Structures are given as structure tokens and as C-alpha cells.
Amino acid sequence: MRPTWLKAAVLGTAAAMTLVACGNSAETTSTPSASAPSTPSAPALSKSELEALAVAASKKAGSPTKVPKITIGYLRYVAQSPADQRMYESAVAAAKILGWTVIQCDGQGDPAKMAACGNTLLDQNIDVLLNDGIPQTVIATALQRAKREGVPAVYSGGSLDEADLYTAGYVPPDGEMGTALAAYVAGQMKGRSGGAIVQGFPASWGVERVDALKAAGVKIASQQDADATNLVQGTQQQIAAQLNQHPDASAVWITFETAVLGAAQALKARYPGKAYPDRPLLATFYANRPTLDLMRKGEVDAAVENSLEWSSWTAIDQLAELKARNTPMSKDVRPNYGEGLDFWRSTLVTKDNLPPAGQLVPPPVDYETFFTAKWKHEFGAGS
């Protein structure tokens, strides 16, 4: 499958690198293109500014009302994934403010289990089927059933090529994230022999990320896909084999964020006590806590971070409008809530701009404060 949306901006520096997403981007085909380094479109908003914007957004939605109590069935791609954990936990936190219940089922990266999970959740009379970016072909039967039963089906966190069976979806700019990371990797590889060992993933977001690397002109030494059912040990074995076949490789690119844990183990075993540039560069997506810990140890070199929790909060907000007002959910994968509220801006993280130990990179916009204030004014939630 080929990527279906996103425009891209190249970022060319190593530290504290941020990029601006596309605002109201529709799902149209776009090829990553080079441009000057980007900076945030607006400074970080203060709590009072966020609360004022939240009040404005709630008034735009309509007069204060009540939101009904519902149960969300959350179908998890693979609960082992730190990114999955972030999206699921943020969905639970957001739903709790509205008094909603969330039940879950772990697909464990296995298409058969994901398909079974979808129907298992629907059997429990859920009001919403929510997941973190599962391709509709994998759970088509469950999605078709949800549509027949009038249950909204929503995805967040991962772009999809085709989503006509879904009610809506909200996702980070994977193409832009790939372009930012690719620019950094390309810059680091200049003057070094050998290409990049690439581990991709057969989903539209995975294709977009790898396409960005190729568009940056990076030489590809080898390319294989990750096994979602065996992300750590399987990746360790896969990357170890590729390092043996390509001993002059200059970089290792990991598309599925959890797999970087296995890649780091493979590099550590082959290059004990070595850090880049005395071993290949290791780059990946999402600066999850385990990845940040490895970066502090010098075992991972770069990760493009997106505070992807915003997509869960956005999904919950859109569902609240649907349930409370019968307002159709936005078809924009990154809805416009107001100027400066581009929650999805991304940051390239290296050893030069690590957050304090135990913490994630702060979001460019405090989505939690915004939505909490919006729901308090609009629905009386959390009062």
C-alpha cells in the first residue's frame, strides 16, 4: 500500500528540532519535499491562554449541555508497545473526565487476534469502538458489524490508506516525522561508507516513514519488515543478521518504535562499549521512556517525537460532541481547534536535548489543559 496524505518539511539541525504540521490536512497524496528548517508557528501557550481558547471552542460547539455516560471498547494494536501504552492510557484518562468507561482487548500485533478482539468488544455492547491505527482490512468484519449496529469506529495515532469503514480518525503527521528524521540521518551519514539497514513495517504509516528516508537520498543497504508479534527479540535477531551481512553499514533505521529495543541489543552485542560514530547510528520514532533511557546510555542516537496522546484526547472530544450534540465527527485527521492549537508539532530528540530522567518530552501545546477546560465549560465535566 502506498501513503495517502501529508506534506513534509525537512529539518536540518540535530538539537531541539521542531516542525510545524499541516494544520487542516486532508487525506491526499503528497510526496515529501525539502524546505528550510521549520520553527513552531506559535510560542507555548500559557494556562490562561489555553483556558480562554477552550472557552471559545466550547461556545463554538454550542450551549452548555450534558454528555451521556458511555462505554468505549479499546482495541489495542499491541499492548507491548510503549506508544500503544501512551495512546491507551491517555484515552482512559480523557474518558474518565467525562465519566466514561473504557474496556480493552489486546491484539498482540496478530491480525487474527485483532479481528477477534473487535468482535469480542462488540459482544459486550460497547457504544464506541476505538483503536490505535489498525488497518481496516485487518478488522473489516468487526468494522462492518459496528456500522450495522450503529457503533462509531474511530482510530488514532496511525495513518491509514483507506478508512471508509471508520467513522473518523486522528493521527500525527507521519510523513513529516519521517522527513525530519531522514534529514538528520542523511546529515550524519555524509562522508561515511556503507548504507542504512532499514527495518520497515507494512502499514501506510510505515511506508510513509521509509519513503521519507529514500526521498532524502540515503543509500539503503538492506530493507526488511518488523514482525509485530515479535518486536524485540525478533528485531534483535534480524538486525544482528543484517549487521553480519553489511559490516560497513553506517546507520540502522527502525520504523516501529518498540523494535528499537531489539535493535539496540543487536548493536550492543556487535559493538560492545561503542557509541556512534564508532558503531552505526541508531534512529527511530517516538521518544518513549524506554527509548529515552537507551539514549542516555548512548545506545540510541535519535528519535523523532510526537506527543501522540493528543490524538486520543481529540478522539474523545470528537466523540463527546457526537454523543452530546449529534455533531458529526471531524473528517480532518488533525482538526483545527483554534490558532496555535497545533498539538501535533514534532521534535527531533538527540543526546543534546533529552528531557529529565523519567519524563517524556513536553508537548508543544498542553492538550490536556485545553480539553479539560473545554469539557468543564461545555459539559460541566470534572466539576
Results as ranks from 00 to 15, higher is better:
Met1Glu: 12
Ala14Asn: 09
Ala15His: 09
Met17Asn: 10
Thr18Ile: 03
Leu19Arg: 05
Ala21Tyr: 05
Thr39Ile: 10
Pro40Lys: 01
Pro43Phe: 00
Ala54Tyr: 06
Val55Thr: 12
Val55Ile: 14
Leu75Glu: 01
Tyr88Ser: 14
Ser90Asp: 14
Lys96Val: 07
Val102Ile: 12
Met114His: 07
Cys117His: 04
Gly118Leu: 01
Thr120Met: 12
Ile126Thr: 02
Asp127Asn: 15
Val128Met: 09
Leu129Met: 01
Leu130Tyr: 08
Asn131Tyr: 13
Gln136Glu: 15
Val138Asp: 09
Leu143Ile: 00
Gln144Cys: 03
Lys147Thr: 04
Leu160Phe: 05
Glu162Asn: 09
Val171Pro: 04
Tyr184Asp: 08
Val185Ala: 03
Ala186Cys: 08
Gly187Lys: 09
Gly194Gln: 03
Pro202Lys: 10
Ser204Trp: 07
Val207Thr: 15
Asp225Ser: 13
Asp225Lys: 06
Leu231Asn: 11
Gly234Thr: 06
Ile239Cys: 05
Ala241Tyr: 02
Leu243Pro: 02
Ala249Asn: 01
Val252Gly: 15
Thr255Lys: 07
Phe256Met: 13
Tyr271Arg: 08
Tyr276Asp: 02
Arg279His: 03
Ala287Cys: 09
Lys297Gly: 04
Val300Arg: 02
Ala303Trp: 00
Asn306Lys: 04
Glu309Phe: 14
Trp313Lys: 07
Leu319Val: 10
Ala324His: 08
Arg334Asn: 06
Tyr337Trp: 14
Gly340Leu: 03
Arg345Leu: 10
Val349Lys: 05
Asn353Arg: 07
Ala357Glu: 15
Pro363Met: 08
Thr369Ile: 12
Phe371Glu: 01
Phe371Val: 00
Ala373Ile: 01
Lys376Trp: 01
Lys376Gln: 14
Glu378Tyr: 03
Ser383Met: 11
Ser383Asn: 10
